[in-house]
C-alpha cells in the first residue's frame, strides 16, 4: 500500500475544523443549529422606510422566520 505523507499541521487544522463544526452552536451550510445564536439582521420593509431588526423583534416574543420568494 502506498502511504502519502500528510504534514501534522494539516491534520491538526482538519481536526480543529471538525470540532468546530460538530460543537453546539456551530453554523454550517445547514444554517444555524438549534441552541445556537441566531444571526442578526437589519432588513428593509416593503413599501415603507422602516427597518426590521431581529434584536428588537425578539425582545418580547419568539419570532417565526418564514424565508421564501415568489417563484
Amino acid at each position: 500500500m502506498i502511504r502519502i505523507p500528510v504534514p501534522r499541521v494539516v491534520l491538526f487544522a482538519a481536526a480543529i475544523l471538525l470540532l468546530q463544526q460538530s460543537g453546539k452552536g456551530a453554523r454550517s451550510s445547514s444554517g444555524p443549529a438549534e441552541g445556537s445564536i441566531a444571526p442578526v439582521f437589519d432588513l428593509a420593509v416593503p413599501e415603507s422606510k422602516a427597518r426590521v431588526k431581529l434584536d428588537e423583534l425578539r425582545k418580547s416574543k419568539p419570532v417565526a422566520l418564514v424565508f421564501g420568494s415568489y417563484t
Binding site: 441566531a38 425578539r58 417565526a64 424565508f67
Partner: peptide, 21 residues
C-alpha cells in the same frame, strides 16, 4: 446566514437562540 434558499422556517427565542430550524 440562515442557509434559507429557496425556502425555510425558523423559530427564534427571546434570548436570541434558535429554538427550531
Amino acid at each position: 446566514d440562515y442557509a434559507a434558499w429557496p425556502e425555510r422556517l425558523y423559530l427564534i427565542g427571546t434570548d436570541g437562540r434558535v429554538l427550531f430550524r
